[in-house]
Computed example of a mutant assay.
Amino acid sequence: MPAETTEPPITAFMLVKTTPEWLAMTVRERVDAFTTQVVPAIEARTTGVRSRFYDTEFYSARVTDVWVWEADDHHAYQLLVDALRETPFWDRYFEVVDLLVGVENGYARTYGLDPVATVTT
């Protein structure tokens, strides 16, 4: 297998917990806050960032949501975090409980192996 010549994307699992201020907002106010305060800040500061959001409050009292961010490289991820920290989402609407950042199949890249994964149909 040929060695990778490009930097692999960075995946960050941002474990967060909602705050009383966030929960006091209506659903519409929450959506408006995200689309007017967070999205513009991210778009103004970085490119090459994608996101997905998972609700976990059904299963965890410590973490209510997991935000999954994929960035094209370390610099894009750093700009993303800087942008988020300048919005009320960082430690006002959400407490950032933990950040788990990694590279998918990093071991395979390191050792020149094909990734091991499962696929079921």
Rank of each mutant, 00 (worst) to 15 (best):
F58R: 14
Y77F: 07
D98P: 06
D65S: 10
T36H: 09
F53T: 12
T6L: 14
T11N: 15
I42V: 08
Y93G: 07
T118M: 04
F89Y: 01
V116F: 06
V97P: 07
T5V: 00
A117P: 01
E4D: 06
R62H: 06
D91L: 08
L113R: 09
V31N: 00
F13K: 15
N105Q: 11
D91W: 08
A41Y: 00
Y107I: 13
R50T: 04
D55P: 07
E86N: 10
L84N: 02
P115T: 09
E29K: 02
D65P: 10
L100V: 08
R85A: 05
T46C: 10
V66I: 09
A117R: 03
D82Q: 11
A83Q: 05
H74D: 11
P2V: 08
E57G: 09
D98L: 08
Y93L: 01
F13W: 15
T11F: 14
A44P: 03
V38A: 10
F94C: 09
T110C: 14
K17T: 00
T47L: 09
D91I: 00
P88F: 07
A117Q: 05
Q37R: 01
L100P: 01
F53S: 13
H75A: 08
R92M: 12
R30M: 05
E21S: 00
L84G: 04
P8Q: 04
L80Q: 11
A44K: 06
A44Y: 03
R45Q: 03
T110E: 15
T47H: 13
L23T: 02
V81Y: 00
W67R: 10
W69A: 10
N105S: 13
A61D: 00
E95G: 12
E95M: 10
A83C: 01
V38R: 11
L100Y: 03
G112Q: 05
E86C: 06
I42Y: 07
P115L: 06
A76Y: 06
K17C: 08
T19W: 09
R92F: 12
R45V: 00
F53N: 12
I42A: 05
W22H: 15
N105P: 12
T120S: 05
V68G: 15
V116D: 05
T118R: 03
F53D: 08
A71W: 13
T19P: 01
T35Y: 06
D72Q: 13
L80R: 06
A61P: 02
W69C: 12
G106Y: 09
T6C: 14
S60F: 04
E86M: 00
E43W: 05
P20F: 06
T11W: 11
T11V: 15
T26H: 02
M14I: 10
A24F: 08
V68S: 13
T120M: 03
T64S: 06
P8D: 04
T35S: 05
Y111D: 07
G48Q: 06
G48V: 05
G48F: 07
A12R: 14
A12D: 11
R30Q: 07
A117T: 02
V66H: 02
R52N: 15
G102I: 14
P2T: 03
T47D: 13
A71S: 15
P115H: 10
L113P: 11
V96H: 15
R45A: 01
L100C: 07
R28L: 01
V81D: 03
R62D: 09
T36L: 10
E21P: 04
S60Y: 07
Y111R: 08
T11C: 15
V39K: 12
E104M: 04
A71G: 13
K17H: 02
E4W: 00
T11D: 14
E104K: 04
E104A: 01
